[in-house]
Design a protein around this nucleic acid. Sequence first.
DNA 1: CATGAATGAGAATTCATTCAT
DNA 2: CATGAATGAATTCTCATTCAT
Lengths: 205, 205, 205, 205
Amino acid sequence: MPRKLDISLKKQPKQARAIATVDAIVEAATYILKRHGAAGFTANKVADKAGVNIASFYQYFPNKEALLFHVATLTWDRQLAQLAPVLARGGQDHAAKLREFIRMFFAVEAAEADLRRALRIAAVELKDTAQFRELMDEGAALTRTFIEDALRERAPGDLSFDVRFIVLLTTSFAERTTDEGTSDAELMRQADLLADMLIGHYGIA
Amino acid sequence: MPRKLDISLKKQPKQARAIATVDAIVEAATYILKRHGAAGFTANKVADKAGVNIASFYQYFPNKEALLFHVATLTWDRQLAQLAPVLARGGQDHAAKLREFIRMFFAVEAAEADLRRALRIAAVELKDTAQFRELMDEGAALTRTFIEDALRERAPGDLSFDVRFIVLLTTSFAERTTDEGTSDAELMRQADLLADMLIGHYGIA
Amino acid sequence: MPRKLDISLKKQPKQARAIATVDAIVEAATYILKRHGAAGFTANKVADKAGVNIASFYQYFPNKEALLFHVATLTWDRQLAQLAPVLARGGQDHAAKLREFIRMFFAVEAAEADLRRALRIAAVELKDTAQFRELMDEGAALTRTFIEDALRERAPGDLSFDVRFIVLLTTSFAERTTDEGTSDAELMRQADLLADMLIGHYGIA
Amino acid sequence: MPRKLDISLKKQPKQARAIATVDAIVEAATYILKRHGAAGFTANKVADKAGVNIASFYQYFPNKEALLFHVATLTWDRQLAQLAPVLARGGQDHAAKLREFIRMFFAVEAAEADLRRALRIAAVELKDTAQFRELMDEGAALTRTFIEDALRERAPGDLSFDVRFIVLLTTSFAERTTDEGTSDAELMRQADLLADMLIGHYGIA
DNA sequence: CATGAATGAGAATTCATTCAT
DNA sequence: CATGAATGAATTCTCATTCAT
């Protein structure tokens, strides 16, 4: 039963002042999610921390989920930007590229583990939102393409199944291990092991 | 910062009537977690749904986290019971055993995906509880032993690292894929693929 | 508007078992008042601490105030018993007797300052009870007689006024200074000073 | 064991409307304390009586103790203001000044006996608050200075002991006798008697 | 527009007390 | 009669959100 959850920004801030307001809100939200987790994420607290009036908050965001979505989008974009170079790199050394991608993915995930965790918890209600699913899909698409590329030559019967599997495997593991606070050294070791397994299994060259 | 969160039952119900009450509470909690997720899980709603007075709730549970822990324990035990036969099976056919374990694990996870998801979200606050960690550890220990057993002969240098990796990989993937509502057929295919990869990589016989 | 506050014991415990129950309750109540103050004094906690069922509590006490009154009575009696020898002592050395009485009174009050303080706070609601006022009066009467005796010869016009004054002055000061946690040494010094002042002013010989 | 009891106002009301709200709350609190005593003093009842929403209450006061402290402060200040002229009066007629001070003190105390009594009971929880102790000390300091002044010439060995004694004696007696509902006439008679005793004993001129 | 103010609804928890066995 | 069980009514406090200026 997907609720009527309007998640889109009420209006685009145009004046510098308004932009500053929205920025402050987003920053405060990010800070609170990081430091106090999803439970501490309340509209009033965010507005307080941002130093803006709660009514101003509702000027730009129709509800607290909209802000959450906004933060999630920004976070996602930021992380995608970090991964972009790896994803975009050309060449045919798929094995090396995959290994590097996984390492990078783990590292990026680890860098904001706190925020990610909080978002994951808080975003539960966003899940039945078209926009949120779209966001997730967009992100996944890039990775999917990348994996597809590496696999195509060794293509087994059902490429899309394997791609889905690898994406799920990589992302879920990354999410979980960073959540557990795995050390950087072990993290990289895990990344390499995972890469090795995939490369070995699929015979990626 | 471990809060003072007393999670143990306040008193054991003795008369049949009281047992029924506690059962009703647990059942209602389970239902609500399944249907309305962690957000809907409030002491009042649970008591309401269970048809018992809120004060009765607090006669048996010192706080709502205690109930949550109780439900988590029951769920965990139930699932462990399903896995136990596989885990306990003797014999040296490690490859077959591993494959079956993973299939079984995925199936079990899928069977109560809704509840598991809700518990995962709701249990955030339980995490810094000694008792909760103990519960998690107990469950993990069995699996760990099982994996260790399969790996021992092919033991690479750092057994514990590999065991940790496999456990994390399997459980995080299972969690995620069931969460996404993967179909049973695909689920089993994924299980087999994961098993194959592990068996292949570690040369499990 | 004096509430309908029935403060009398529901029934006198006769069997040894019942007497033990009541004793346990009283002891628990005293302990809780001392240690946790008036705020911690709840029927359930008392019953718990006493190890008796809450229903048993209400078998003997019609309400929690009745227990409070009972404890107050016992406390009062116990303190009166300590003062009795001084009050009863014959002889005409009124000055010495007064000095000793005040010292003794202060000491007695100090000995159970915690309990007294808690009772004072908790007993607010008892004040508009006939029985409570009676209890207070009974205690005061003895003292009043003692003071009257000391004053009679030096009787100014309105004996009862002076007696009331002295009783009030002594008891209120004792209550207050013990409440402040005055040290024993200072307490005795204050007692002597107060006695001196009274002896001097009234010319008590 | 000083609890974390934040007693300071959450935010200052700025608009007239808000000031009216806070005023209404304070007034309601005072009324309830007077009429229904400390036991009736609950946040909801106060808000109800004040005709404001309970959430508005918590917009200005972080907890009910903060309101209590606020009322206590206002009461204390009001009473101090009445005593100030007497305390500040210069001149060397210490005996007359002391007599007048005690009379005034008794009268002031009697004027709001109900409120004072309720505050005394309700403020138990405030006692381990730095701010409350500060408030008490401030008030006591003035009186102490006044008494010191009267006593200095006749200074016995330990001035501070005597000052403490007199302050305690006067305030505890005033508290108690007003609490008992002593008539105005008798009250003044008691004041004079107490003054006479002190003047006589210390030889205050 | 931004701010101060306000609030309905609900959350967690407690308490005095009664009832059935 | 003692115990286990149950509960109505409060109590403290929070949250998302709206409105008036």
